[in-house]
Design a protein around this nucleic acid. Structure first.
Lengths: 156, 156
DNA sequence: CTGCAAGTTAAAGCTGACTTCAGGTCAAGC
DNA sequence: GCTTGACCTGAAGTCAGCTTTAACTTGCAG
């Protein structure tokens, strides 16, 4: 019973909530690492769970895997990352979320006035104008709660 | 100079801000329609611009093309949609945006406490826990402002 | 030592919202 | 009538973030 402190793929999958295929994908993408048995099977150190927790949190906040990889790369390699490392690395998410909330709030408020006038004018409407500040968008993959996706408001 | 009131693909593309390829795509998907010349080229009626403005606004709010098609299908076919038609159809976006804002705010507040403790625990952290209410996410394609996507906060 | 669940790989597939390409046609100014 | 730019179609490509598949190997309980 040696290597009791190493975890198999299915153990990590179960404890992290990620599918085994996602773990392999993350490894290929350089987000996590793993040791191998003599036979070539993956064996994970326990700290990978914290890394995966970070990845999940970051995905929720809306970071791409590229951004997450960059963030993880700033962790010290010489020692096990501690609480303040994780705190530092996730502190800037605050700003990001604030900005996202502000953008959505601005959109909502613009919508209110648009509903009032019923315009949706390409020239004047802040929401539909492709050149408007509020309309210069990319396709961020922000994760939204299921309810918002599965019960699309009928009638709009 | 007949059919002066009909628009070509490039005119609609320029005035709506959508690429010509997107207009053809939207037509295939049943979101917009077009007349044809004897030679088979598209000629758009002016009201397609309002429809496209609606589509753009809806995309910004985060609706999928499926949802947009459903919404457009509720417009009257017998007459040209008026302001109150467009207002009705976009009113429910308010609720949707409110929910999205609430979800992000909850996430941000949870993040604050997580930064405080530096935990990111799979068992306890509201942000990284895969089973947590706040963590049951789908992959909504909410459009985020470019700045948020192009200047990923360094260090996280 | 055997049986079989769990693991391995590379490669292909999926979703959504489009864009790009190849190969050909149309329309309008001169 | 000719030239040229705008337009046509169907099919394939793109991107992210994974999942699925096929064919094969490992590792551990009995």
């Amino acid at each position: 019973m040696r290597d009791t402190d190493l975890l198999t793929v299915s153990e990590v999958a179960h404890r992290s909530g990620f599918a085994a295929s996602a773990l392999r994908f993350y490894e290929r993408e350089g987000l996590i690492g793993a040791q191998r048995t003599s036979g070539g099977q993956r064996r994970y150190e326990r700290h990978v769970l914290r890394r995966l927790a970070f990845i999940r949190a970051a995905r929720h906040v809306g970071l791409s895997l590229d951004e997450i990889r960059d963030a993880l790369a700033t962790l010290p390699e010489s020692r096990t990352p501690n609480k303040s490392d994780w705190a530092r690395i996730s502190r800037s998410w605050r700003t990001r979320l604030d900005e996202e909330i502000a953008a959505l709030t601005a959109l909502r408020d613009g919508l209110d006035s648009c509903i009032g006038c019923g315009c949706l004018s390409l020239q004047r409407c802040a929401i539909s104008n492709p050149d408007d500040t509020a309309a210069r968008f990319g396709s961020g993959a922000l994760y939204l709660p299921k309810p918002l996706r599965e019960e699309p408001a009928k009638g709009a």
